[in-house]
C-alpha cells in the first residue's frame, strides 16, 4: 500500500515531531522521554492526572486526546505495540501535581505488562498513587461472562472523556476512578472490517480479506472476529452489530445511550453517516433513546476500512461527564 512517509523505521518519531510543532500552544513533550507527551500544564492546579497510551497507528487515539477535559499525558508506542514503562512513568511524573494518577489503556497483554511496570516504578520511586482502568469494550472478542478476556477498542474514547472530565472537575482519585470504571463497565462496542491495513515497515497487509469479503467483529489490529463472509449492506451489518451489542447490554425501553460510530481509517464520512442512520433506526425501533452522538474517526487502525459502533449506557452521573468541554489537538467539544 502506498504511504506518504520518509523512512518507514522512523514514522512514529516523525509523526510526533509534526504533532508537537502543530499544537505547540497546548501540548509539549516531556524532556525526559521523547515518547511522552503532556498537555501544557498549570502546576498551580492540583488534580488527579489522567494518563493514557498504547500503540501508534490508532490516531487520533491516543496522543490526540491530550488536553483540557481529556488526558493529561500520553505514552506513545510503536505501531500497534504498547509503549515501554519508561515513557509511561515519565508522563505520569511530568503532570504529577497531586501524587494521584489514573492510567487508562486497552486490554492487551503488552499494555498490561508495560503499564503495570510503570505503575510499580512511580509508586515505589515517587510515591504516586496509581489506579489502572483496563478498557474491554469489544463484545465480539469474547462471550458475555468472559468480559475479562475482551479487548479494548473505540469505546475507550468515552472512558478517557469521562476520566478527563471528572479529573478536571476536581474530584478525588476514588471518585474519578469510580466514574471512569462506571463508563468502562457501561460501554460496549463491536466493529466490522472491510479492508486490511499495512504496516509501514513491512508493506504487507496485516491480515487477509478478499475484495468482496468483510469480517464482523474484527479487532483493531486485524484480530479475527466472529464471522467472515461476503460484503453486506450497511443496514444488514448494522442489524448484526446492534443485535450483538444489545444482547450484552440489558437496555430497556426509554434507556438512553451515547452513540459513537467510529471509522477505522479509510472509511468515508458518507459511509459512517449511512451506518449511523441504520443504527438510529434500530435503536428507536426498540425505544432506546440517543442522548448524544459522535460520528467520525476516533480510533483508527492505520488505513483499515470498516467501522465500529460503541454504545455507552447513560445515567445522571455520566451525562455531565459526556457533556463536559474538551480541548485537545484531535478532539474539541464545547
Amino acid at each position: 500500500m502506498k504511504k506518504l512517509i520518509n523512512n518507514p523505521d522512523h514514522v512514529v518519531d516523525d509523526m510526533i515531531k509534526g504533532f508537537l510543532k502543530a499544537h505547540s500552544s497546548s501540548i509539549s513533550k516531556v524532556e525526559a522521554h521523547h515518547r511522552a507527551i503532556i498537555r501544557k500544564y498549570s502546576k498551580e492546579k492540583k488534580k488527579v492526572s489522567v494518563i493514557i497510551g498504547g500503540g501508534s497507528g490508532h490516531e487520533p487515539a491516543f496522543m490526540g486526546y491530550v488536553g483540557k477535559g481529556m488526558a493529561d499525558g500520553v505514552a506513545v508506542g510503536n505501531i500497534f505495540a504498547s509503549p515501554p514503562p519508561t515513557p509511561i512513568a515519565e508522563a505520569i511524573k511530568a503532570v504529577d501535581t497531586k501524587k494521584e494518577s489514573i492510567l487508562i489503556y486497552g486490554n492487551y497483554q503488552g499494555d498490561i505488562m508495560n503499564f503495570s511496570m510503570a505503575a510499580d516504578l512511580v509508586e515505589m520511586e515517587e510515591d504516586i498513587e496509581v489506579k489502572q482502568i483496563i478498557v474491554k469494550d469489544d463484545v465480539a472478542s469474547a462471550p458475555k461472562g468472559e468480559s475479562e478476556q475482551r479487548r479494548g477498542i473505540s469505546g475507550e474514547f468515552f472512558v478517557i472523556k469521562v476520566a478527563g472530565a471528572a479529573s478536571e472537575m476536581g474530584k478525588d482519585i476514588d471518585e474519578v476512578y469510580r466514574l471512569t470504571e462506571k463508563a468502562n463497565e457501561n460501554v460496549c462496542s463491536m466493529g466490522v472490517g472491510l479492508t486490511p491495513c499495512s504496516l509501514p515497515q513491512t508493506g504487507e497487509p496485516s491480515f487477509q480479506l478478499e475484495d468482496d469479503e468483510m469480517e464482523i467483529g474484527l479487532g483493531h489490529h486485524g484480530e479475527p472476529g466472529v464471522e467472515k463472509g461476503k460484503l453486506q449492506s450497511s443496514s444488514k451489518v448494522a442489524e448484526r452489530i446492534v443485535h450483538d451489542i444489545l444482547a450484552d447490554m440489558s437496555l430497556v425501553k426509554d434507556d438512553e445511550v451515547t452513540v459513537l460510530v467510529n471509522g477505522l481509517g479509510s472509511t468515508t464520512r458518507m459511509e459512517l453517516y449511512i451506518f449511523f442512520d441504520e443504527v438510529e433506526k434500530l435503536l428507536s425501533e426498540k425505544g432506546i433513546r440517543i442522548y448524544r452522538s459522535y460520528v467520525g474517526d476516533y480510533s483508527t487502525s492505520l488505513e483499515m476500512g470498516g467501522c465500529s459502533l460503541s454504545l455507552l449506557k447513560m445515567d445522571s452521573e455520566l451525562k455531565p461527564m459526556i457533556d463536559y468541554f474538551a480541548y485537545s489537538p484531535m478532539y474539541e467539544q464545547k
Binding site: 508506542g77 510503536n78 504498547s82 515501554p84 514503562p85 492487551y108 503488552g110 505488562m113 508495560n114
Partner: peptide, 12 residues
Amino acid sequence: FLDTVGSSVGPL
C-alpha cells in the same frame, strides 16, 4: 530492549 520495543516481548 524493553525501552526500544515495549510491546509484550519487551517486558518478557
